[in-house]
Design a protein around this nucleic acid. Sequence first.
RNA 1: GUCGCGGUAGCCCAACCGGCAGAGGCGCGGAGCUCAAACCUCCGUCGUUGCGGGUUCGAGUCCCGCCCGCGACACCA
Length: 942
Amino acid sequence: MSEADAPAFRYTAALANEIEKRWQDYWSAHGTFHAPNPVGPLSDPSHPRSGAPKKFVLDMFPYPSGAGLHVGHPLGFIGTDVFARFQRMAGHNVLHTMGFDAFGLPAEQYAVQTGTHPRVTTEQNVERYRAQLRMLGLGHDERRSVATTDVGFYRWTQWIFLQVFNSWYDEAAGKARPIAELEAQYADGTRATPDGRDWADLSASDRRAVINEHRLAYASDAPVNWCPGLGTVLANEEVTADGRSERGNFPVFKANLRQWMMRITAYTDRLIDDLDTLDWPEPIKMMQRNWIGRSYGAHVDFVSDAGPITVFTTRPDTLFGATYMVLAPEHELVDSLVPAAWPEGTHSVWTGGHASPAEAVSAYRAFAAGKSEVERQADAKEKTGVFTGAYATNPVDGRQVPVFIADYVLAGYGTGAIMAVPGQDERDWEFAEVFELPIIRTVQPPAGWAGKAYTGEGPAVNSGMLDGLGIAEAKKKMIAWLEAEGHGSGATTYRLRDWLFSRQRYWGEPFPVVYAVTADGDVDNQPIPLPDSMLPLELPEVADFSPKTFDPDDADTVPETPLSRNREWVEVELDLGDGLKRYVRETNTMPQWAGSCWYQLRYIDPTNEQAFVDPANEAYWVGPYPDMASGGTDLYVGGVEHAVLHLLYARFWHKVLFDLGHVSSFEPYHRLFNQGYIQAYAYTDDRGVYVPAEEVTEDPAGVYQWHGEKVGREYGKMGKSLKNVVTPDEMCEQYGADTFRVYEMSMGPLEVSRPWETRAVVGAQRFLQRVWRAVVAEETGDLVVVDEPADDATRRLLHRTIAGTREDMSELRFNTAIAKLIELTNAVTKAGRTPREVAEPLVLMVAPFAPHIAEELWSKLGHEGSLTYADFPEADPALLVQDTVTYPVQINGKLRGKIDIPADTTEAAVREAALAAVADSLAGRAPKKVIVIPGRMVSVVV
RNA sequence: GUCGCGGUAGCCCAACCGGCAGAGGCGCGGAGCUCAAACCUCCGUCGUUGCGGGUUCGAGUCCCGCCCGCGACACCA
């Protein structure tokens, strides 16, 4: 577009850029978006919103990646900015800022690639992000911006870790309590020590061992997810269903390693139940419920020669149909169950052709262990297993049932053992068919049931005392019987496991933990917390910060922590209250999720040196309110990909902090909103090579061409390798930030993913140009607004627009709000003159979307300073009611006429007028029925 | 396979509690402005609401069955 001969004051990209730069400078010079705290250095009683009702608007903070932003990234950021700006104008004190999730694998991998220290690259990337965000005109309180890598920030991450470490979960009280209260219970004898000795008789190390068993953060030897290709262990949530790392897609192996865990399982019920207090999208709540996986049922003991085998079942009502048992191949009782020889007459399909049970079991274990996760799942349909040679007793009727091992039973869920009820379980049925095991139906299927296992509702049959009962009553009765007879008890199990919290990486928070070194140089493996006074424990410089990675497929490797390479840092002499002694430091670091578990709390009080957040500031910004019992942020916008990672971990930490009295809210994020993604087309030539998307043209026949060559189109992500990246920088340069913002907000609802289309951006620019021209003469730059009143129709449209826009804004329906503003602008444009009573509210309503042009027009309209805290227009209810209504008149559902009639006409009169209007169509037929929907329509039935 | 979300004009999307299928944008066509064009303004264009059935005076909207797309989970006892 040539701008050379454009009028001097046309709203072109060049003018937009000049205005935008000027107002961004103004905002930062005036601290326009500073939100006042109730107390502390960030309080400001003179602020126009000091003490006003608050809104805490939060974005999921980004990794400052080296690649910078493309147009998809800021979608949510712009959405929250629009919302925040609207809420400021609507009278709220709005906290909105942006921090950086700068620890973790991506930042480190980028640093490794470029050979520079992660701190250097991280800080560069953060600066670049800040500049890009500023260019978009986001109204952030920059005083509150933090990066998780700031020493002043991670000092408090470490402090919170110590709070978690120094607490235990009191099941009786249903909450976490300080560990000192547990020690007191041991000391005064209210709680017995595990081996019955007196607390006073235990050594310091033994006491530590007893206490450490209860801590909410603990180190344990357990099977963990070891990823040689990344050189670190991973949490369950970071491993995909097919056993690979979510990041990098490397194979993950189970390995027994000593690692840090977080006792998130103590919070399973609260993490599920408190979802009901949250205003979150239902799919996200469901994903969390599924991930935690609570099931109600019973533990039942089946007696065997090797002792009782405890199974978990959700269907204790079907116990009479349990015809065999299955243990996971790695179940601990398997070895002691296996007899020396097959019992007399053992069915040949049960033995797998092996001469003895021991051989069969070890062969099957080798077979199962040799399968990858992918193969195991692919084979899920075909049941495999082998008889152990042992039998156990079904407690309800004393029947002897064979015990099998099979890989369809998972060691990690329930007790790793099941009672198999083929009549009511599809998997058990399949297994029973393969091994020719008996099948007893204990729930009567409906008449004509042709299927195999029946899992639906029905009366119990073949079940003695349960016969005739429905499933729920039968369960209840069976559990009562099991408990009375001592064969089992009601039980709840969960799929969720404790959270693996340590990583073998350099770029993460060091654990504020040491281990005692004994006189002869041995290291005691009981962790000892550092006192708060020794925080922060800073990351040391190491010569080589690269992770030690391995052949991705080599399971026989062990992780090496980069911090262990700096012996001077690792080996220390400290006085922890009993004189100067030798210790070694923990060399694992925390996972990326640590900082994001609580960063929003630091936004509230970023400069506080005494506490991670002042209670008064916490209570004001995220405390419980009558309409928000959980407390938490008022809005949290981010992608759906964190449904069971960040959002689960952060809720857990927040609840610990709540239990310990450090925060007054029991949930961190009250309202959650998932924004969609901006996607893009990519084009490949006939070799399958990507060609630059911006150079592709579409001919009238709908064929895509690149330099005359026919190319194929695909739809998906925006990325460098796909050659379809569009950056906000380009858009700001070609159209201006305001146009870019309006375009992104008008493309569709915030939660919907949509394709990027650069050529459509011009629509947003035309809209802003019309707004501009409605106020300013393009040739002279003079104000063209007139001080005469608006005509009635325009005034009514204005007030309908105000009412509609207000409603849309609070529901985050920005696309329809913009449509209404465009409609109003088009009406003003058509009228050819702009009364001030329309211009001013229009500018104010446009402001959240296009703040720079709005500020500029607001000052041209004669106002001093920024419109940030100007009142958002209010509609006059009197102007919203129509004085005449157009009723469509239908005959048998078909539109046959219309009537215009005063709005206050009685229903009977409307009926009269309607019948008169369609008299021709009726042609004398008598209406059977006439339905008048007041204000809507008339429907005649003949 | 199970669960969730979605399918409206050439494209992106509106349509409250069931009430005239269209708010807005892109594209396309035409006119005005212009020496001419761009810009701008105005006018116009476009439909089996994924398919089939049901409820209703009336269905994009509610119910049942299917098809397609996206996402999550995937032997969870």
